[in-house]
């Protein structure tokens, strides 16, 4: 969705049209996209909740989850929402240097979370939980993997945005573009809060 986020400014608004809702086209589109994403994660979470206790081979969730470790990486991800807010606020104050700084930090925090997830997946795999091992394994990796892909896409968007700002090639309202990617980023974080609670904290 980087294309929506950084592009397609509403040319028509410049020429006699008004935006009937008062929201810009880009922002409205992002909200709709995120609404749709809710149901995507809803489906994956439902699948996990249905299958989390169904283990015929391999380890149960309680045998492999490392709650302290995942708590730390969750904390890192949640902190990235804070830095994202700071990036948006710098962008609104038209402070490019600060915006870029906070974008990089946000991306680094996101990448740290992904690193944690890679480490966690590797550990689980060594302990006998593969993608094909059991219904629990398949649905766990599908759900958390999908979330991981979303974070990774977010990191790529943050870094690309930074590059584009540096080169001065951004089209349209710069602060809004940062805000749009921020919306996506916060959404991915909020989804993680739900996943962390349902997957890790509630015993099956």
């Amino acid at each position: 969705m980087a294309d929506i986020a950084t592009h397609d400014t509403d040319h028509a608004t410049d020429h006699g049209h008004h935006s009937s809702t008062g929201l810009s086209n880009n922002k409205l589109a992002m909200w709709l996209f995120l609404g749709s994403e809710c149901l995507l994660f809803g489906g994956l979470i439902s699948t996990y909740m249905l299958y989390r206790g169904r283990v015929q081979n391999g380890p149960h969730s309680s045998q492999i989850y490392d709650i302290p470790f995942t708590s730390v990486s969750s904390f890192v991800l949640l902190m990235s929402s804070l830095t994202m807010v700071l990036a948006v606020s710098s962008a609104q104050r038209k402070d490019d240097a600060k915006t870029n700084l906070w974008l990089v930090i946000t991306a680094l925090l996101g990448a740290t979370f992904i690193g944690g997830q890679v480490y966690e997946f590797t550990t689980f795999y060594r302990e006998g939980l593969g993608f094909t091992t059991s219904l629990f394994g398949s649905s766990f990796y599908a759900l958390t993997g999908f979330h991981g892909v979303h974070v990774s896409v977010g990191v790529i968007m943050l870094l690309s945005l930074m590059g584009i700002i540096k080169k001065g090639k951004i089209t349209g309202d710069k602060a809004e573009v940062v805000e749009l990617i921020g919306l996506y980023w916060h959404f991915v974080d909020i989804v993680w809060i739900i996943i962390f609670t349902l997957v890790y904290l509630i015993p099956s």
């Binding site: 509403d10 935006s19 809702t21 929201l23 810009s24 086209n25 409205l28 709709l32």
Partner: peptide
């Protein structure tokens, strides 16, 4: 949707 909501 964006077209209908925003560009009437």
């Amino acid at each position: 949707i964006v077209t209908v909501l925003n560009m009437r």
